[in-house]
C-alpha cells in the first residue's frame, strides 16, 4: 500500500472545487428554473405552488423565492409551454433576499444571476474565526427528519465533513455553530431559545431546509412559526427539501471562503 502523505491526511485548504469534483451528474439539489423557452404568463405555476414560492410581479417578472421552494415539481408539471425544468438548484445565502430570483417572462433565462467574484473576498471577522474549525450542534425544531438524516450524512465516509474541520458536538456549550431545522414548532420554541442562549458567542446560526428558511410547507399555523429567523438571528440559509449533504457542505464552505 502506498504511503499516505501528511498532505492527504491534513487538508486545511480544501475548497468548493474539491466538493464540485465529487459531484455526480445528479446533484440532487434540483429546483425549478426557467429553461429559456417562452413563458405564456398563464400563472399556472403561481397557482399550484403549495408554499407560495412563485409570484408574478407587474405581469412581467416571474419571481422565485427559493427559500420557500420544497422542490415538489408541481410547477414544472403544471407549466403547459414547458418553460420550467428541474435545474441544479441554488446554494445557501446569507439572507433570504439573496435566495429570491426574478426572471423576465419575455425572456426566461436559465442562468441564475451570479454574484461578481472578487479575488480578495472580504470575510467578516465573525465568520473568519471559524474558517478552519467549526464545532456544530444540531437543533431540530419540527422538521420531518429528512434534514436530520442529511446532516448526519455529512459525517459519513463519503462526505466526511471532518476533513473540513466540521465536527458535530454533543452540547451547545461546545458549539460554534447551530444547525437549525424545521419551521420552529410552538412546543420547540423555548428549547430553541435556551439552546441559542447556551451557545457561547461568537456563534453562527445556520437554517437548513425550506421549513427553517421560510416556514416551508408547514409554516405559519397556530402551532408553527415562519422559520428560524422569526425567533433568533440567522447567518446562513440553506434551501432545499431537504438539501443534500453536498449542498450543505458547499454552502458552509462558501460561507467560510467568503464567496456568498
Amino acid at each position: 500500500m502506498r504511503r499516505i502523505s501528511c498532505k492527504r491526511i491534513c487538508r486545511p485548504k480544501v475548497t468548493i472545487k474539491d466538493i464540485d469534483a465529487q459531484r455526480s451528474s445528479n446533484s440532487g439539489r434540483w429546483m425549478p428554473v426557467p429553461d429559456g423557452l417562452v413563458c405564456s404568463g398563464c400563472t399556472a405555476c403561481v397557482k399550484i405552488c403549495p408554499t407560495g414560492a412563485i409570484t408574478l410581479k407587474n405581469d412581467r417578472q416571474l419571481v422565485f423565492k427559493y427559500d420557500a421552494c420544497i422542490a415538489c415539481r408541481a410547477c414544472v408539471d403544471a407549466c403547459a409551454p414547458g418553460a420550467l425544468v428541474m435545474g441544479p438548484g441554488i446554494d445557501g445565502a446569507t439572507s433570504r433576499g439573496a435566495l429570491t430570483h426574478a426572471f423576465s417572462i419575455n425572456k426566461l433565462s436559465p442562468n441564475l444571476p451570479e454574484k461578481p467574484q472578487t479575488k480578495d473576498a472580504v470575510i467578516p471577522e465573525k465568520i473568519k474565526i471559524f474558517a478552519r474549525s467549526m464545532h456544530v450542534r444540531e437543533v431540530d425544531c419540527g422538521s420531518c427528519n429528512a434534514c436530520e438524516l442529511e446532516i448526519a450524512a455529512i459525517s459519513n465516509p463519503v462526505y466526511d465533513a471532518e476533513r473540513f474541520g466540521i465536527h458535530i458536538v454533543a452540547s451547545p456549550r461546545h458549539a460554534d455553530v447551530l444547525f437549525v431545522t424545521g419551521p420552529v414548532t410552538r412546543q420547540m420554541e423555548l428549547a430553541l431559545r435556551k439552546t441559542d442562549a447556551a451557545t457561547p458567542t461568537p456563534k453562527l446560526i445556520v437554517a437548513i431546509g425550506a421549513c427553517a428558511c421560510s416556514g416551508g410547507l408547514f409554516g405559519n399555523t397556530p402551532v408553527t412559526g415562519t422559520g428560524v429567523d422569526e425567533f433568533i438571528g440567522v447567518d446562513l440559509y440553506i434551501p432545499g427539501c431537504p438539501p443534500s449533504p453536498r449542498a450543505i457542505l458547499r454552502s458552509i464552505l462558501a460561507l467560510r471562503s467568503g464567496t456568498i
Partner: peptide
C-alpha cells in the same frame, strides 16, 4: 415537533395532500 399536520390537511387539493404526506416523516 407537533406541526398540526392532520388539521393542516383540511381543504388541501389531492396533490397537495400527497406532498404533505411525503413530508410527514423523512
Amino acid at each position: 415537533k407537533h406541526r398540526g399536520i392532520e388539521r393542516f390537511m383540511r381543504g388541501r387539493s389531492l396533490l397537495e395532500g400527497a406532498l404533505v404526506a411525503e413530508r410527514v416523516s423523512g
